Computed example of a mutant assay.
Amino acid sequence: MTYQRDELGDFSSVVCFKAVITGVEDTLGKDGAGVVFTRAGKVRGGNLARELGVAGSNAPISELAAKLDGAIGKEGTRLASVKSVREEGGKIIVDTRDTVCSSGEEMGSDRNCTFTMGAIWGALEAITGKTYLGEQTQSVLRGGEFDRFEFEEL
């Protein structure tokens, strides 16, 4: 049996999550924190795919946006809104908005969405059974329409 928060439920504030990010950055440096949060996100994404029963399903790319958005979007944990998932030039491209990592940041900030990218990365690997190299290639903080993540199969 696991402990459940009776009054507050499963969700906490973006402000508290961002405090964890900046505190870890202060301790480990930006690069070290990026590695930690990407890995933590991958673990979360893989576990989420297993919880949803889609791990190993190799679901078609055309179905992934709805599956991911249902899990981490408005009806899920509210980590990010997944707008599209598509294949382009041998890569899987995931466009998101309203990522928790970008929330509250100044426009022009160099903040990347390491945890969000990691969560999508982990879910993608669990669903497809493939290994990818991921990178953030666009940011709403730096003029992008989306926080965009690209995954190339290794």
Score class of each variant (00 low, 15 high):
residue 130 K to C: 04
residue 100 V to R: 15
residue 26 D to S: 14
residue 113 C to D: 08
residue 96 T to G: 01
residue 129 G to V: 03
residue 122 G to M: 07
residue 29 G to K: 10
residue 16 C to G: 01
residue 91 K to T: 00
residue 127 I to Q: 10
residue 64 L to R: 11
residue 121 W to A: 04
residue 152 E to R: 14
residue 28 L to Q: 06
residue 110 D to P: 09
residue 124 L to E: 02
residue 140 V to N: 08
residue 134 G to K: 02
residue 142 R to Y: 04
residue 72 I to E: 07
residue 98 D to E: 13
residue 124 L to S: 04
residue 23 G to Y: 05
residue 100 V to D: 05
residue 88 E to K: 04
residue 9 G to A: 13
residue 115 F to L: 13
residue 124 L to V: 03
residue 128 T to I: 07
residue 34 G to A: 15
residue 81 S to V: 06
residue 70 G to A: 15
residue 147 D to L: 03
residue 146 F to G: 11
residue 61 I to C: 11
residue 146 F to D: 10
residue 13 S to E: 07
residue 124 L to F: 01
residue 9 G to L: 11
residue 149 F to L: 03
residue 142 R to S: 11
residue 150 E to W: 00
residue 141 L to H: 10
residue 37 F to K: 08
residue 48 L to N: 05
residue 104 G to E: 03
residue 13 S to V: 02
residue 1 M to L: 09
residue 80 A to C: 10
residue 37 F to A: 06
residue 91 K to G: 00
residue 148 R to Y: 06
residue 88 E to T: 01
residue 52 L to F: 08
residue 114 T to H: 11
residue 136 Q to E: 11
residue 64 L to Y: 01
residue 135 E to T: 03
residue 8 L to H: 10
residue 36 V to W: 05
residue 55 A to P: 01
residue 99 T to D: 06
residue 117 M to Q: 09
residue 110 D to F: 11
residue 62 S to T: 08
residue 9 G to E: 13
residue 53 G to Y: 07
residue 118 G to Q: 11
residue 130 K to Y: 00
residue 78 R to Y: 06
residue 117 M to S: 05
residue 146 F to C: 12
residue 78 R to D: 13
residue 116 T to V: 13
residue 122 G to I: 06
residue 75 E to L: 13
residue 109 S to A: 14
residue 106 E to I: 02
residue 43 V to F: 12
residue 42 K to G: 13
residue 38 T to Q: 14
residue 35 V to S: 10
residue 116 T to A: 12
residue 91 K to F: 00
residue 149 F to M: 08
residue 138 Q to N: 15
residue 48 L to M: 14
residue 32 G to Q: 08
residue 130 K to E: 06
residue 115 F to H: 10
residue 35 V to T: 12
residue 92 I to N: 02
residue 21 I to P: 00
residue 76 G to Q: 06
residue 145 E to A: 10
residue 37 F to L: 09
residue 55 A to C: 04
residue 29 G to E: 09
residue 133 L to V: 13
residue 111 R to L: 08
residue 66 A to H: 07
residue 121 W to H: 15
residue 13 S to A: 12
residue 87 E to A: 09
residue 123 A to L: 05
residue 75 E to M: 11
residue 36 V to K: 09
residue 57 S to T: 12
residue 99 T to Q: 07
residue 111 R to E: 12
residue 137 T to S: 15
residue 134 G to A: 13
residue 19 A to I: 01
residue 111 R to N: 11
residue 33 A to V: 01
residue 22 T to Y: 09
residue 105 E to G: 07
residue 138 Q to E: 15
residue 49 A to V: 07
residue 79 L to K: 09
residue 54 V to Y: 05
residue 134 G to I: 01
residue 69 D to A: 08
residue 135 E to P: 00
residue 146 F to N: 14
residue 150 E to N: 02
residue 91 K to W: 00
residue 34 G to F: 03
residue 39 R to L: 10
residue 54 V to S: 12
residue 54 V to H: 09
residue 5 R to S: 15
